[in-house]
Structure formats: structure tokens, C-alpha cells
């Protein structure tokens, strides 16, 4: 279960505090629920994901995680350029407390990412596609109760994307999911419930179709 209670967030800019991105967002996401975050560009979807993922903190209010939550998948950071893919993967295994079965998890990551010999090359030599394959493979290697994903299914070439989609579907079947996507098909495919973020507020819809409808109508008027 994830509790978001009265969360306000604004960013620091070069000239003082910026405008409020989120203003008093509250909701509770039960375990195993699949939620899509919907909203226009800059509405605060990614900000909300970062807050839920615990890598940023609200100015006011609080976020509580009562289960194991993944880091925001599809996130650009989290890889150290000078180290190889293997060492990056080992690092992530270790901080998630998988020291004992590290060999199996590394093998799984290596197999899924399909990087070949590049797995032992420094990450800074990777292309964007290779990076996102590694990141996707890493996030699959752990058993989280809730996965949070920011446009994650858009990784790599067509063949990899198909494989990733299948793997992601399997994963979503056994755990909770909070995702941001601009693709309505993806959202409908994965999510049952929707949260529409608009003017710093979050509106909860029990059905994703209603959330999409509200979002579309706000765009027209």
C-alpha cells in the first residue's frame, strides 16, 4: 500500500522557488493495483512518480510506502559511465540486499539485456538503446511489490520492445504498477485505474477509460 497525503511540490529555480507543480495531492494506492497517471506535458506526472519512488521529497505533506517499491524504471540516471554494465548491475543487486544470489541475478540481467560482450564494457560507450536495455533488464531482476515506470515500454529496437512488453506484462500480472505513458493503448493495456493530474490536483478514477475521457475533454475545452 502506498499513501500519498496532502503532497505539495515545487522546484527550486535560479531565482527563488518556482511555481507549485503539485498542490495538495492525496490518495491511497492499495497493493496489486495497476494505476496509470494521465496528464498534459509538465502537469507533474513524473514529479509524482519521483515522489512515490522516494528519490525526491515533497515540500509539504508525506509519502508512505508500506511495501517494496521499485526505483522509477526507464529513468535516465542510475548508471555509472566509467564502470561496465556488469559492475553497474552488481551495484544495484547489492544495494537491494541480494548479496547472496548475486550470480544468478547477474546472469538473468545479462541474458535479458542481450548486450553480448558489451556487458563488460564501460557504460559510457553504450548507445541510448543499449543503456535502456540494461536498465530494463536490471529492473526485471528484482521482486518488487509495486513497480513504477516512466515510459518504460519505449526501450530499444522493435524486437527488444516486443520482448520487453511481454516481460512487462508478466510482471504486471503478479505485482502492482504505477505508470506514466503518453500512449493510450499502453495505458489501457496495463492499467485498471487512472489518476488524472490537472492544475496541481490529482483526480482518482476507478476506471482508466473515465480518466482518459476526462483528460481528453479538458484538452478540447
Amino acid at each position: 500500500m502506498i499513501v500519498v497525503d496532502n503532497v505539495h511540490k515545487r522546484y527550486r529555480t535560479d531565482h527563488g522557488p518556482g511555481p507549485w507543480v503539485l498542490q495538495g495531492v492525496s490518495f491511497t494506492i492499495p497493493a496489486k493495483l495497476k494505476v496509470g497517471l494521465i496528464g498534459a506535458n509538465g502537469a507533474g506526472k513524473s514529479t509524482l512518480l519521483r515522489l512515490i519512488g522516494g528519490i525526491d521529497h515533497p515540500n509539504i505533506g508525506r509519502v508512505e510506502r508500506h511495501c517494496r517499491v521499485s526505483w522509477p524504471m526507464g529513468f535516465a540516471g542510475g548508471l555509472q559511465g566509467s564502470l561496465s554494465g556488469r559492475h553497474n548491475a552488481k551495484f544495484v543487486c547489492r544495494i537491494h540486499g541480494h548479496e547472496r544470489d548475486i550470480a544468478e541475478r547477474i546472469a538473468a540481467i545479462e541474458a535479458f539485456a542481450e548486450l553480448g560482450e558489451a556487458f563488460d564494457e564501460p557504460v559510457k560507450t553504450y548507445s541510448t538503446g543499449m543503456r535502456s536495455r540494461l536498465q530494463f533488464a536490471m529492473s526485471l531482476a528484482f521482486d518488487f511489490d509495486v513497480y513504477i515506470s516512466d515510459e518504460v515500454t519505449a526501450a530499444g529496437d522493435a524486437a527488444f520492445r516486443k520482448k520487453a512488453l511481454t516481460a512487462f506484462k508478466e510482471l504486471a500480472d503478479r505485482s502492482g504498477l504505477i505508470m506514466v505513458s503518453h500512449d493510450e493503448g499502453t495505458l489501457k493495456n496495463f492499467c485498471a485505474t487512472g489518476i488524472w493530474i490537472h492544475d496541481g490536483q490529482a483526480v482518482w478514477f476507478d476506471r482508466i477509460d473515465d480518466a482518459l475521457k476526462a483528460y481528453r475533454e479538458s484538452r478540447i475545452t
Binding site: G54, F75, G77, G78, I95
Partner: peptide, 10 residues
Amino acid sequence: NKALFAYRQV
């Protein structure tokens, strides 16, 4: 190590 703060454990 800025990149690693993407993992909230760090």
C-alpha cells in the same frame, strides 16, 4: 555519485 541518488537507498 549524483546518478546513484536515483536509488532511494543511497
